[in-house]
Design a protein around this nucleic acid. Sequence first.
DNA 1: ATAGGGTTAG
Length: 845
Amino acid sequence: MASLSITHIPNPQFFHFKSEKSRRSPHFAPIHVSKLHENGQSSRIVVYKSYLHQITSLCKDGKIQEAVDLLTEMESRDLRIGPQIYGEILQGCVWERAFFTGQQIHARIIKNGDFCTRNEYVETKLVVFYAKCDARDVANSLFRRLSVQNVFSWAAIIGLHCRLGSYEESLLGFCEMQEIGVFPDNFVIPNALKACGALQLIGFGKGVHGYVVKVGLDGCVFVGSSLVDMYGKCDEVEDARKVFDRMPERNTVAWNSMIVSYGQNGLNKEALEMFYDMRVEGVELTGVTVSSFLSASANLSAVEEGRQGHAIAVLSGLELDNNLGSSILNFYGKVGLVEDAELVFRSMFEKDVVTWNLLISCYVQNGEVEKALDMCRLMRSENMRFDSVTLTSVLSMCADTSNLKLGKEGHGYCIRHNLESDVVVASCIMNMYAKCKRIGSAIQVFSSTTQRDLILWNTLLAAYADLGLSGEALKLFYRMQLDGVPPNVISYNSIILGFLRNGQVDEAKEMFSQMQSLNVLPNLVTWTTLISGLTQNGFGCDAILVFQQMQEAGIRPNTVSATSALSACRDLALLRYGKTIHGYVIRHDLCLSIPITTSLVDMYAKCGSICQAKNVFNVVVNKELPIYNAMISGYAIHGQALEALSLYKHLEDVGIKPDSITFSSILSACNHAGLVSEGLELLDDMVSEHSVKPTMEHYSCVVSLLSKSGDLEKAYELLQTIPYEPDAQILGSLLAACKERHEIELGEYLSEHLLKLEPDNSGNYIALSNVYAAAGMWNVVTEVRNVMKGKGLYKNPGCSWIHIGEELHVFVAGDGSHPKTEEIYATLALLEMEMHLMGYSPMIY
DNA sequence: ATAGGGTTAG
């Protein structure tokens, strides 16, 4: 006769793992049957056995009601019903999760009572039944009143706690059973390990592992798989792998656990390799396998692999259930294949919140704002409720698009549905307000949170940093540490960014070295923040040095860092080094990136190599406005006004609207080429055709153009119509013309105006030097620069490089001739020497 | 015993 084991796995393969005790379970000895036999009631035995047989097979087929009917029949025939019958039916109820029927059986047991209620087998079965039906209270109270708490009932109770997420309780039970002398078997161990994994109790887990080896359970696949899973959940993938490699036999679950461990620890590549090994070894794939494979593919943006995963799922005839379907959907969403994602979504027959959220976040991530909103509406119309994940998607969409109105609605929904207590949601709300320039509301939300994790602090930190509120950021940075939350790289990155946005270069550098001394390793973003911040503050030399240090530290430049480095080269006219970066960019296939090609064009143009700029420009296929702007400004600088104008006209042909920057370049080109009527026409176009509001700079160009053409009257007329207070530059250009034309009266009037402007403004000095430069009075220009230096307005070398470039520019253009690259280089070389004398380190040049 | 969705920094 086969074992009537309570836990229903009568697989002979594992029998040797069962303890002696369980093999002597009371249900194993049908005492009453032999008693009947002794009484000579053999016919009753036959009848009883036939009932038992029928009931057993009915229960196995899941026909509980028919089994219960037979039980009723037995009662009516006055047959004495033994524990075995009740046990079988209860087991059937467990398989079918027939809670109501099971309760009725329980009632009959109590009624028939006497020798069954105090029977260990039946009692245990009842505990198992209630436990499997997740009826915690009943299961617990029955368990506590058991005459004997055996390994089966302990397994049931521990499993129940695990299923309901009470992992601490389950481990307490695991300890308690050992204290009272019941030894955990291969059915209890997996649950204990699961609890260890969930609670990340690696020490406890290792203890259980030790016990497993000691009692020789380490050959069991169930135990082995659970160990793999536990180590994986505790972030000890290497140990997980060791256990996996030493398993005497591995089934699909063991392989799946290993793949999942890799995935959960970010080792997505290893997860993919594991999947391929699995196929080579011919291990059966399940939905779990493919699901984990797809998740790893999604994380790696591995389009081909993920597609294969989808194909394998279909070809293997795996049921496209909610989990597997969602994994496929997630994959297509992550890699941006929106249509495929839609297709999968439509083909799924069972959908839950997760499924809907996946499609919504797919739309959000791919910028399909309207579709995302439509989905939300559809979700509501199908009576689905938004959960915290839906809201995070919607709120991050609001942040991306600065949609404050929708964001507020989302916030309202969170309040009404008690979702704002979720830290993730709270972070999203704060981020949304910050991106919509409502820092006050973000702070309010932050203050109202009770539970604060690292990301929540970092969100507010990032908001302060973005605004350059370095003081506030620093205060928060200390506050979080007082609160016992140690900052991570991202926190440091925000602090550094805050300083750089506020022009505090030294403080940023200091923080950069501080983080390293505290063993917080700078990452790609840290380096990039620093490089681009240094460039933007005019510290191009430092930026390039940091760019090189980054590579020495073994970090490969990406689009953003390369773009910033190119900007630094542009500012410093470092053509050679710019070319080096160009080479790097080509070797690493970064050349297809729009920002990079734009920066390359910009760099070449501003470094005097207009031909190279043109070469890069011509190769780019999908051109957008910034690259046109870079090219137009390049032509402008090189005095090729007609080329600039024709490119400007070309914009109209390709249907791209010019912006304020376009007009700055083109107007300055006209200005330098003396194209008066074109300049005036452009100023008119700007307002009437493209509704771009002219800035001071734009007016300045036209005023200068008119001044230089000698039409001082018209220039002065235009000056009076400008809706801004005239600045030093515009006054300067008129002044220059006055000087040239000997219009002393107007010149003196304008000079007075100029003197009234803030005296210590470096811009004024530059303008002043431009006035003299335009008049060709270079000795006076140098004098002005010396005054600036004396006042400390000449803080960094990058600044002076740009200024000298501007001076030259005006000088050359004022001459009416095209700027000569050699001249620029000659001046720069002089300047470099000057810098060297001032103590700045020489550059790669 | 194993599987699916979300938040912060350039």
